[in-house]
């Protein structure tokens, strides 16, 4: 358990979620980019926000980090209101924006250092060097930021966002444009950051990334936060197992009544697809085999495929789109 008895002043103590979003709505003219979003981020977690292009991920992050001034609802970062107490809220937050930016007047190291400076970090040079090194940007310190490659710019932006030791870090598509090797390294780094106490909210289009990194996953579609689930629960709750059986002969007629409780369809000749939920308590699959055996069906081949986050995600969006259209 964390022990706050030694904390010097009571005002530093804060026991609530590191981020609380209540009833967040945001529109651009007629376009409703966010609709009544509620979200809490707990200390120390990695939260992945998923959604198709234009779903509202970046807009939500921008509202939290002060890049969107006008929205409805309440946002509080470690107890500081993102609008009324914006300076304090921003001291706690770090942002790696989705959009690559550069300042053509300065060398890489200079931009990282001065970013720390803006947040009141003393003697930021040494820290800037260390961060650049950790992000595999050693040797690029003197390069003009304009001349860095896309992936390098991205990593430079991560270094900048970390200069003031934010407790809550937003990574808006952190691995977009980063090569495979560096991406693995970046994932490792994200885990290290979390180990050292940084809470992380990331968005990504690589569902593999969310699957590997995230503790919890939120799915946003057309501005609405459809669900927030622990990753493992999400897989259990929405995951499906597809079992494809190839039999020696077609299933006998009398079976179809008994198979009513199963979700299945016929595939190609003598091929049958059965769908199972991952969180099913009943031993449905063994029972199926038993049943088939009783009716003298001999099974030639069995193929199983478990749905991945990607399938779950696709299905969720499809259901939502059907429901709202």
């Amino acid at each position: 358990m964390p022990n706050f008895a030694t904390a010097p002043t009571p005002t530093e103590n804060f026991a609530g979620p590191v981020l609380t979003v209540r009833g967040l709505s945001k529109s651009f003219g007629n376009l409703q980019a966010l609709r009544n979003v509620d979200l809490e981020i707990e200390p120390g977690e990695i939260f992945a926000l998923l959604g198709v292009n234009g779903a509202g991920k970046t807009t939500m992050i921008e509202c939290i980090c002060g890049l969107q001034a006008h929205f409805e609802g309440q946002i509080s970062v470690a107890g500081f209101d993102a609008r009324k107490d914006y300076a304090k809220a921003r001291q706690i937050t770090g942002l790696v924006p989705q959009e690559l930016n550069f300042d053509g007047f300065f060398q890489s190291l200079e931009t990282v250092s001065s970013q720390g400076g803006y947040f009141g970090v003393r003697h930021p040079d040494q820290k800037a060097r260390a961060l650049m090194k950790r992000l595999s940007l050693e040797g690029k310190e003197k390069d003009n930021t304009r001349n860095l490659s896309g992936g390098m710019k991205r990593r430079l932006m991560i270094a900048k966002a970390l200069m003031h030791d934010p407790a809550l870090l937003f990574l808006d598509e952190p691995t977009a444009g980063v090569d495979v090797e560096l991406r693995d390294d970046l994932w490792q780094y994200v885990r290290e950051l979390r180990e050292s106490g940084t809470t992380i909210v990331l968005t990504t289009h690589y569902l593999e990334e969310a699957e590997k990194l995230a503790d919890r996953i939120g799915v946003i579609n057309r501005g609405r936060l459809l669900l927030v689930e622990r990753r493992d629960h999400l897989m259990d709750k929405f995951g499906r197992k597809k079992v494809t059986l190839r039999t020696a002969q077609p299933l006998p007629e009398e079976l179809s009544g008994k198979l009513r409780t199963y979700q299945w369809e016929e595939g190609e000749k003598n091929e049958y697809h059965f769908h199972f939920r991952l969180d099913e308590k009943e031993p449905t699959l063994p029972r199926l085999f038993e049943l088939l055996g009783q009716h003298g069906v001999s099974i030639m081949d069995v193929e199983t495929r478990q749905s991945r986050l990607e399938d779950i995600f696709r299905e969720l969006l499809q259901t939502d789109d059907e429901a709202t259209s």
């Binding site: 005002t11 530093e12 804060f14 200390p43």
Partner: peptide, 8 residues
């Protein structure tokens, strides 16, 4: 970390 950031 949050306590540290709040202090800052």
């Amino acid at each position: 970390k949050i306590a540290g950031a709040r202090k800052n």
